[in-house]
Write a protein that binds this DNA or RNA. Structure first.
Lengths: 191, 191
DNA sequence: CGAAAATTTGACATGACTCAACTGGAGTGG
DNA sequence: CCACTCCAGTTGAGTCATGTCAAATTTTCG
């Protein structure tokens, strides 16, 4: 949990009472590789901070294909925000790509936290600001770059991830087929 | 400005002192059709709430084409958030598609506002939550739907916008060429 | 070791782009 | 108020990027 407190300290200052209170609202959970933290159709009960491991958030489209909208590694938050906020069935599933440990907070506890320690409004505002900016750029790239450009960009930006996760998941994150990704890779090595 | 106060009241409760203080930090500005509220390369000095009119946020890509990442109409916030927060040159431009009136707040004033009325941390957290959710869905659609599906979805979701803005801007929002959008439209009427 | 899943490879199909020519409407100056 | 220009939109022909399908190969894991 030290990690999580440090993560928070990068954005807001808590005194030790506040830290203790915050920790009292958090639960740790382990998800084994290939298990789901959240299943599309269920209500997303918690927001989740990754202490270790790796996950992907994805959705089944009409044709039954999986589309990965986000990867998460250490230090990232994952969840289905809409489902969490409204407590309605989730549109996304979240799967562990490795054995993963998360710190969880439920909606009731988060609401209590906002009430007791309003600084957390600021904390999550800051987190969301960063996420918003990153997503806006991703939209731009999705719509105006070719598959090859998106793949090069991905490799440069997340070299660790390229090693850690299966190609089919990268393909689905980039919005292309695994077959086509394989062609791009061949092209890359053969020049 | 009544609109803006109502918009805020939908998310947080202000007393009349707070309202007055907030209003003292806001400026109104008119932008004529075809003028820029923000020019790529300049620093984004304000966040902007649309009181009336219509704008688009776009970026020039490497090939010199414009990619529209967002439209804004009454009741939306527009700006280049990264540039605004870091006070560095903007990656996006913002153009008025109609004569437009915005309510503006500068970074210094917003920082003061957060300090004096921490409820605004919550307000912008809530705004960002909604924006984040909408963007995540847009990423999913950009990557896993065909141009035709994206266009149909757009027409259904924003029928007003389809009337108000030029086709080339819709095309650039959808990530396709104006020529191809024109073909999709013909197909739609001819069955 | 064997079975299942992931990746690669090749042939072919199609969605979306480019280019160029044409049409029509909006804005401008006389 | 007309004539002109100019930009947005349309149309068609040809091309390229990416997808589909199916088979071969490699990797993973029980």
């Amino acid at each position: 949990m030290k990690q999580l407190l440090q993560h928070i300290a990068r954005h807001i200052q808590l005194d030790s009472n506040e830290e203790a209170y915050f920790l009292s609202l958090i639960q740790e959970k382990t998800i084994r590789k290939k298990e789901l933290l959240l299943q599309q159709g269920e209500v997303c009960k918690t927001e989740n901070y990754l202490l270790s491991g790796c996950m992907r958030t994805f959705k089944l489209n009409e044709r039954g294909e999986e589309q990965t909208v986000q990867f998460g590694i250490e230090d990232w938050w994952v969840g289905d925000l809409y489902s969490f906020l409204t407590q309605t069935p989730a549109s996304y599933s979240i799967e562990a790509l490795e054995d993963t440990v998360v710190a969880q907070i439920t909606k009731e506890n988060l609401d209590r936290l906002y009430q007791q320690v309003p600084k957390f409004d600021r904390f999550f505002r800051l987190i969301l600001q960063n996420a918003f900016i990153a997503q806006q750029d991703r939209i731009h790239r999705s719509l105006s770059w070719s598959a090859e450009e998106r793949y090069d960009d991905f490799s440069k930006k997340y070299p660790q991830l390229e090693q850690r996760v299966a190609q089919k998941h990268i393909a689905s994150y980039l919005g292309i087929t695994p077959v086509f990704l394989s062609m791009l890779r061949r092209k890359r090595v053969n020049g």
